[in-house]
Write a protein that binds this DNA or RNA. Structure first.
Lengths: 190, 190
DNA sequence: TTTTTAAATGAATAAATATTCATTTATCTT
DNA sequence: AAGATAAATGAATATTTATTCATTTAAAAA
């Protein structure tokens, strides 16, 4: 007996991401996904019950992927700035290397395919960052502003960098990334 | 002879924005727009040739609205920081007071309804800001970093504030806005 | 190899959605 | 007020898109 092929799901996901990047969530159809994935339309329904299930599965997969990257190598005991820099870099790295997923996620947050509850709980992946920032405030490294805004500041900027770098085909070498980090750091530091 | 009613177009636009906020661009149908606008489906086609035309018109309207706000009261002769603060506040104000338009625009940039050329040219509204930042670098007020990133920094953050403030229903009084401006200013200042 | 089971296919069907148009209603003109 | 013109209606039609399923192909088990 052969089991359902994970690889095929990857194929489908990859095709979906590509199409969403090109045409938005509003632009995908099951036929277009199937065609892009080089499978028959009916095959899609072997792996997913319907369109919503496909989008929803991919959403969860992308959230999982991002959670795996954001706090890679993060050591809660390390000095504040070290930890902050690491997480900043990790998120940045994620946005750049998985740009299609980033776009897809963003669009999911304004889509009828993902329910409200899922949208809210999936934001929980930022929790360790929130804790680090709380600590940074206590230790007087950074401004004493509601963590809510500090995260908005950090994440909003990172997302925008990733978008512009991709759309305008800007090279982002280590040096430029550090310049960008400096902007962010100067903003939040006490 | 009665002319086509601008007010009705407003009604249609308002309905579209509301639905896009609730369900995303992927979620709107002509029937849902008509229903929300309290008109018959056929009436939509008196004002717009088709769905694409509706979305495209609204897109242009939103771009126009934003351009009108971003540089309101802006005086090119004023000191750098004065001008920067004004534009920052104006964009922030726009994002907050026209949040549905902001969301709609963002989704349009990843939609099949707007062609590439339009997407690119509509970014030109930031030109005066670009010039101000160039001047700020010459006058040594701000960091000597590619203006491209400076705008990403500023705009990315503003957009994220607006989103979070709206979704999490956070009050944004003058004081909090100034705190947020401070983060931004400390980031870009030399 | 033969049998059995899973996976894949894609044309056919069902459902949703865009668009049209004959008719009605409202507004303007004389 | 009567006639003419524009605007609005919404059911009917056309089109697109989701989903199903009878059939074929491929893989595993016996």
């Amino acid at each position: 007996m052969k089991l359902k092929d994970d690889n095929k799901i990857d194929q489908i996901f990859k095709a979906t991401l590509k199409l969403v990047k090109a045409n938005g969530l509003a632009g995908i159809t099951m036929q277009s996904v199937a065609k892009e994935a080089k499978i028959a339309t009916g095959t899609l329904y072997i792996y997913f019950n319907n369109k919503e299930a496909l989008v929803s599965s991919l959403f969860h997969q992308c959230i999982k992927n991002s959670a795996g990257v954001f706090f890679k190598d993060y050591n809660i005991k390390a000095p504040f700035k070290t930890g902050f820099h690491l997480i900043w870099s990790n998120i940045m790295q994620h946005r750049l290397s998985r740009f299609e997923e980033t776009l897809f996620l963003e669009q999911c947050f304004h889509s009828p395919f993902i329910d409200e509850h899922t949208k809210v709980t999936s934001k929980k992946i930022f929790e360790p960052l929130r804790e680090l920032l709380e600590r940074g405030k206590k230790e007087n490294h950074i401004k004493n502003i509601d963590t809510f805004w500090l995260i908005a500041f950090m994440v909003g900027y990172i997302n925008e960098i990733a978008k512009r770098a991709t759309y305008f085909n800007k090279k982002l070498n280590k040096e430029i990334l550090e310049l960008n980090f400096q902007l962010c750091w100067d903003g939040i530091k006490a």
